[in-house]
């Protein structure tokens, strides 16, 4: 996968599978609010668990909050802080 866009695309793919959004994820900007777009609390938990499996990481307790999973950009930020490689 292209390392420039890889992380964002992988995140979008997982949101598509687990976010249960009523709208098309590809139509949303990186900073668009996923909760506003219809993601429920339970869906955000499934998304969190799927991201952990996909990137082989564990979010620390301090990151298990609403704002971290609010948008493609905030998720990518969090993954970068956990030093996940996009390659």
């Amino acid at each position: 996968m292209d390392p420039e866009s890889g992380m964002g695309e992988r995140v979008r793919h997982i949101i598509l599978q687990h976010g249960r959004l009523p709208t098309d994820i590809q139509a949303l900007e990186d900073h668009a609010d996923l909760y506003q777009a219809g993601m429920t609390s339970h869906a955000s938990v499934n998304l969190m668990l799927a991201l952990e499996a996909e990137f082989d990481i564990e979010f620390p307790d301090a990151m298990l909050k609403r704002s971290v999973f609010q948008s493609v950009a905030s998720i990518t930020d969090a993954l970068e802080r956990l030093q996940v490689s996009a390659a």
């Binding site: 609390s41 339970h42 938990v45 668990l49 298990l64 609403r66 704002s67």
Partner: peptide, 14 residues
């Protein structure tokens, strides 16, 4: 569990 920690954070934030 850990999923619960996130549900709790969501509940508080809202």
């Amino acid at each position: 569990g850990r999923a619960g920690r996130m549900l709790a954070a969501n509940q508080r934030a809202q």
